[in-house]
Design a protein around this nucleic acid. Sequence first.
DNA 1: TACTCGTGGAT
DNA 2: TATCCAAGAGT
Length: 294
Amino acid sequence: MTSTPRTDDRGDLIVDWYDRAARDLPWRRPGVDAWAVLVSEVMLQQTPVARVEPVWREWLARWPSPAALAAASPADVIRAWGKLGYPRRALRLREAAAVVAAEHGDVVPDDVAVLESLPGIGTYTARAVACFGYGQRQPVVDTNVRRVVARMVHGRAEAAPARATDLLDIAALAPADHDRAVRFSVAVMELGALLCVAGTPRCGACPVRDRCAWRLAGSPAYDGPARKVQKFAGTDRQVRGRLLDVLRAATAPVEQDQLDRVWDDAVQRSRCLDSLLADRLVDQTPDGRFTLPT
DNA sequence: TACTCGTGGAT
DNA sequence: TATCCAAGAGT
């Protein structure tokens, strides 16, 4: 006997869970404008919430509009970025702010395609700004969402690499109601961040634990190809970090030999300094010393 | 597509 | 102590 398929209400269960369990993060509070949301999203790219919070507050107090940030020097922006990591994000955010100030009347665009055209704003961040900053119904897919969908929908233990169909997967689960659909986008991320985590998921507290394809399949272990672990010790990233650390702390241009002390391998050291110069994270004075770009 | 790009807390 | 991994983007 066939029956009319009941619409999938897992989206509503996740939104209800979010309403009672979500963290009180400053960029989610009422009255936070799209610029503040944009800054938070760029800072949160690959960087944990706990480290972003204090820096985000400082940035918004210091540069409350795109034009304000665009007027700052790269050196000030790099220093204010502190130790969030991946400092190229700070330069791109400043560049994006300059485009917004010059071409969009200092108002953060609300169109996903326009947002995606800005430096440092990709598929995820563009939709996050449109959804969280402007209240649009938009599918928003980050690593948390891919993991939740992999388990809840596809019955797999781990997230697959990002693909275009991710947006369709998650859009299909969103509640019909507009306001709830908007909240759903952040709610799935929160579920992945708090319960459906990469390590040991807390399925006992999950609002869809009885409707999760992965659990229903017996929580099978990951059986895909071995994922390559990201090394850090000894990499160019570590060397670049050390070089930049010296320049962030310096109050005046530093000599070459001061940079030479941070790493023994001269070939690698030179390569990294060159790459920092190419990235415009470091500048050289006419007399051959090194500084953050002024 | 696969790789690169920081940092530091959690496990 | 070593490994994992965190609201991605650019090339």
